[in-house]
């Protein structure tokens, strides 16, 4: 089963450089570990939500707006895709994501198969 570990934390962009470097080292170590264990399927580190653009369609017309979909304090900062045998394995990887030790959170979502394979 594929799980998306959504990292709800974008403080890394406003941290002092040394703190951010230390955080990135911890992420690199975790990612190396889950590549080695065979769970890794992909990951992404997102630029801050101030760089986001939201696209909708209103009355058949495309509307493009500055900013994230929801104006909340908690924004998606990145994600890791992992293949796990069950939710417990996904939770144990989520529990090793460095951002949860600095006030962030990780939302674990099972990924449904897409209707077409590309």
């Amino acid at each position: 089963m594929l799980y998306m570990l959504m990292i709800i934390d974008e403080r890394s962009w406003t941290m002092p450089k040394d703190e951010r470097d230390a955080l990135m080292d911890q992420y690199a170590e975790l990612l190396r570990d889950i590549v080695k264990s065979g769970n890794f399927r992909g990951s992404g580190y997102l630029h801050p939500s101030s760089t986001a653009t939201t696209v909708r369609e209103v009355n058949g017309k495309r509307v493009t707006m500055d900013g994230p979909f929801a104006e909340t304090k908690e924004q998606l900062g990145g994600y890791i895709l992992v293949e796990c045998k069950d939710l417990d394995e996904a939770i144990s990887i989520a529990g090793r994501i460095p951002s949860i030790r600095t006030g962030g959170a990780v939302e674990v979502r099972p990924v449904a198969p897409t209707p077409v394979s590309v």
């Binding site: 089963m1 045998k85 069950d86 939710l87 417990d88 144990s92 674990v108 979502r109 099972p110 449904a112």
Partner: peptide
Amino acid sequence: KIARIPYEVPGDEV
């Protein structure tokens, strides 16, 4: 079913 919550007794660590 969907999130695949395991049907097992958890290991010692948890």
